[in-house]
């Protein structure tokens, strides 16, 4: 276990990712910026939308730091452990965002935890297809939401998920579904050797 978690760089990379997430929560809080938008002249976007990116990237780096030959011998339940890593990272993100959000009484901070779950789920859904390139999926989603997720009156469309309030059942349902699908794909999809897919 200890060797496995060291090989996966959990104590450095993943811990760093969670710390970066906390730092960004405290840094951005409720600050917004007027960003250019495709379909309205500009949209007011909360900067905290970008907070889950370092966490997603760190998680991806951990999951990709495989030792294929050792792992494929089947001594350890690797797929189960991978699921555990993802769930642990997301649980700490949720815990941090809920705690900080309640302390600061700030809804964007509260939503950041749910957003991390959604973006990680999305990333894991694309990973069997795209390999490590799936790490760009959260970035793409955030950029797409910023560029075309808002209507002329500054309201976010339901499909955007990220800027929706925590009470939005639709966004919660999408988030849950994405995470379950992502974890299922991670567990059951065929694995490529890291070296086989052109990076």
């Amino acid at each position: 276990m200890l060797w496995w978690s060291t090989a996966r760089q959990l104590h450095t990379v993943l811990a760093g990712g969670v710390a970066a997430f906390l730092l960004l929560l405290l840094l951005f809080q409720e600050s917004t910026a007027q960003l250019p938008s495709f379909f309205a002249s500009s949209a007011s976007v909360v900067l905290i939308l970008a907070a889950p990116v370092p966490l997603c990237a760190a998680l991806m780096l951990c999951l990709e730091s495989r030792l294929p030959s050792a792992e494929d011998t089947g001594v350890r339940p690797i797929r189960l452990l991978d699921t555990g890593v993802v769930l642990a990272a997301l649980a700490s993100a949720l815990f941090l965002s809920l705690t900080v959000g309640m302390l600061l009484d700030s809804s964007p901070v509260l939503e950041a935890g749910r957003n991390s779950v959604f973006l990680v789920g999305l990333m894991l859904c694309v990973r069997p297809l795209a390999g490590s390139r799936a790490v760009m999926v959260p970035v793409c989603w955030i950029v797409v939401v910023a560029l075309m997720g808002y209507d002329r009156f500054g309201h976010a469309h339901p499909w955007t998920v990220l800027p929706r309030p925590l009470t939005d059942v639709y966004a919660l349902a999408i988030t849950t579904f994405t995470l379950v699908a992502g974890l299922a794909l991670q567990t059951y999809a065929a694995r490529h050797e890291s070296g086989r897919i052109a990076p």
Binding site: V13, A33, Q34, L35, P36, S42, L47, A50, V53, P54, C56, A57, A58, M60, L61, E64, S132, V135, M136, P138, V139, I142, V143, A146
Partner: peptide
Amino acid sequence: ILAAPILAVSVFFLVASSW
């Protein structure tokens, strides 16, 4: 895996919010 997404999202937000 760390640098590409973090750099891309930082560039996007820094440039876009300069307005």
